[in-house]
Amino acid sequence: MSNINGKVYAMNVITPMKPSKTWILRLIFWVLGVWKPAQADLIQLKFIQFARWVIVPAGSFPYLGGRQRKDAMRYDYLFFFSNFNGTWNQYIDAFSAVLSDGLNKIWRWSEKFPGSVPVTPFKNYITSVQYDTDYYFSAYPQATVNDVEAAHLVNIAFESLCTTASSQTPEQFAQSYLQFVIASQSHLGATGEAPAVF
């Protein structure tokens, strides 16, 4: 069992919500989906590779018949799965400091949610509703989301440089190469083992 694979942490959080409130959260997610500027803070945090929220309505836990007993719950459940870079504390601290309003909009419909500020009761709440991961696979565990973005930026610039290089004079190429290095130099950091941070 491990919540960590390389530089990525798998967080699983499941919270109960009164069904009468769920539509509000669905509306909030709909707005987040169609109005991209609302995701700006989430994008700028730059440490989430993938994240998702899944609302499971009270009567919608999969029922496949046979010997399974159907689950008829009183609450809807909000599942949150995040794949983030860094440590649990860094993640929760950053969420609380930067996205407190956004977090409150999402989780205030969950039972007993204390609010994302102050951070101590928020961390206690997340701890109480978090599940450990039994198996966590990453195709590129050595890379953070910044590494992935940087790699694609460098590759695009390199491809562009190389497709024109053969038709350029050395003087023209020198200028193109200089521009390429200037554009890429901040994206060339090596990937590898993550530092242990406590």
Binding site: Q49, F50, V148, A151, V154, T191
Partner: peptide, 22 residues
């Protein structure tokens, strides 16, 4: 309900190639 993927236009192979090439 809501899916967030900041890098969502590259396949797994494209990302692995990009990381190696970098």
């Amino acid at each position: 309900t809501f899916f967030f993927a900041p890098v969502n236009d590259k396949t797994r192979t494209q990302t692995l190639v990009a990381l190696r090439n970098k």
